[in-house]
Amino acid sequence: MKIETAPNGRLTLRLTGEIDHHSAAAMRKTADAALIRFRPRELVLDFSDVSFMDSSGVGFVMGRSKRAAAFDCKTAVCGLKERDRRIMKLSGLESLVAFYTDERKETT
C-alpha cells in the first residue's frame, strides 16, 4: 500500500495486489494506523493497482469509512475495475461512500 498525503487534508491510500480475507488483515492495520496518524478530512481509497478482490474489499471499505466518519472524514473510492465495481454495488455502499470512475479524481 502506498500512502500519500496532500496539504488540503486528503489522505490517499493506493492499494496494491490482491484483496481477500487473508491480505485484508494487514491492509486494515496499515490503513487504520495512517488514519490515526494523519487524521485527514478526506480519505481516498485508490483501487487502480488492485489485481483481484472479493467481498473482503467491500468489508475493507465499509470498515475504513466508518472509522473515518467517526471524526467527520469523508471517504471516496476510485480506480475500481468493472467486476470490483459490481461487487461494491451489491453492498449498497454508494449511500455512504463516493465512487469515482477515473483513476485519481480530484475530490475537492
Partner: peptide, 15 residues
C-alpha cells in the same frame, strides 16, 4: 463482525 460485508453468497450467485 463489521469487517465482513455479508456478501459471500450474493457474490457467488451473481458470478
Amino acid at each position: 463482525g463489521e469487517e465482513r460485508s455479508g456478501l459471500g453468497f450474493t457474490v457467488m450467485e451473481s458470478f
